[in-house]
Design a binder for these strands. Sequence first.
DNA 1: CGAGTCCTTGATAAACCTCAAGATATGTGG
DNA 2: CCACATATCTTGAGGTTTATCAAGGACTCG
Lengths: 258, 258
Amino acid sequence: MLTVVKHSNDASCRTRASCPAFANAAAVTKEASARYSECAMGAICKRQDLRPPEFASSSSVVCVTRTVKGGATLYRAGDTFHSIYTICAGSFKTVVMHRDGVGQITGFQLAGETLGLDGVFAEQHSCDAIALEDSLVCIIPFDLLELLCREVKAMQHHVHRMMSGEIVRESGLMMLLGTMSAEQRVAAFLINLSQRLNARGYSAAEFNLRMTRDEIGSYLGIKLETVSRMLSKLQKEGLVDTRGKRIRILDLDSLTRL
Amino acid sequence: MLTVVKHSNDASCRTRASCPAFANAAAVTKEASARYSECAMGAICKRQDLRPPEFASSSSVVCVTRTVKGGATLYRAGDTFHSIYTICAGSFKTVVMHRDGVGQITGFQLAGETLGLDGVFAEQHSCDAIALEDSLVCIIPFDLLELLCREVKAMQHHVHRMMSGEIVRESGLMMLLGTMSAEQRVAAFLINLSQRLNARGYSAAEFNLRMTRDEIGSYLGIKLETVSRMLSKLQKEGLVDTRGKRIRILDLDSLTRL
DNA sequence: CGAGTCCTTGATAAACCTCAAGATATGTGG
DNA sequence: CCACATATCTTGAGGTTTATCAAGGACTCG
């Protein structure tokens, strides 16, 4: 089911080319982390000198990657927490389940972003992480990461910034859910996605959605029909051009002003 | 305006009696942290031996407390981030502002809970923290805390759990905002408050609200009139008894089942 | 005790949801 | 490559929930 693809140590972290999130924490600035195209654990791989003796024995699990097919789960709510993950390629959604099967998507994660920090609190994951397409993640054992954070100040601060960034992201989404109209929500969603894709080197104006209207609606706290209607409305107003999952942003300023 | 009340070091951390959040991180378990009645920085105060030399010079700022009058702000969005705060006494709300003054309350914090972790990400705070009543907080310089976390594994893990806990709390609230009816939101709010007050030694069945209907509505993503109507509805159904800010929970099971 | 704030309740309006049907897109086996 | 099956998307009509506006009552604090 789940395949360990690479498993490098001697090979000097062969997965480095695809895992951005943790690269060179010392140089990571506010917006730059997403742009890195180095292995998430590059800093660990490269700093053999920093590792205390007990680190050596477990170093064989460092820089392990895992593929997740579209629709498959990376982890489920309730799973024991061991590791966090950085997305090397592909994209995910995180889903919080209520009782009776009604759930809510709490986030969409793109390449370079991190999954699983919710699990630190209770030592078990609090949501499901499901791949939107065939994806590849770096597995980062959290106890190893904590060990490294005690050794390397820059890595410690990087991890703290990641967690704090997730807190800030969620409170922004809470404001969206608590105060915005359906049209504003859809506009904000498109702008946010556009910015994140742009930071990864894609066009900010034109992109393909990896998620369905239903998933967007779950994320935005509205129904899929409403998402569709608002996209049609934005199209009529000349702000975007949508053809199914293909999105073109025509008037970013007006979209932002909504 | 803002008064530094105590400032202990030689006095062996005189504020210890009122600041719970960081007490003895090694012993902190899932639910227990709220129950501690020791100083948030007890662990720092007590571990002089662990401090590296550069720590000594700044040790005079450790265990500083600050009073905040009801309605006054502890910090504002945009303020440069230096410290986090644990509430020794009183309560706060955190408010995320949108443009044109429309804001959303993202949380209510009680004694023993922590404020300010949102500021780590961008090195400036992302929300306002406003006291709901006259309150007292412990000020914890974050660079000092990071230093301590590199020295003391248990403290590191405690801080990580705190941050992760905030992530989990927010994703639960997102689900509330995204999927629940007004009645369910109000019920969930009362249950949550009841549980947290109970964990602090207060009655789970009867308590006084520190916030207005307007603030509750902002937090729950509904209008104050709707909050009032839903409280009346729950009263008619015999689940709670409300008289202004005084709340009595009569049927917790039914309330939970909504 | 009086001014201001906060709370409750009613009537009406707006936003969004539900249900339904048809259209478009996607994937699969022949 | 086509035809079919399935999933996804769009649009309409009507219903439900919640917001808005308004007025009066209750509480709070100097």
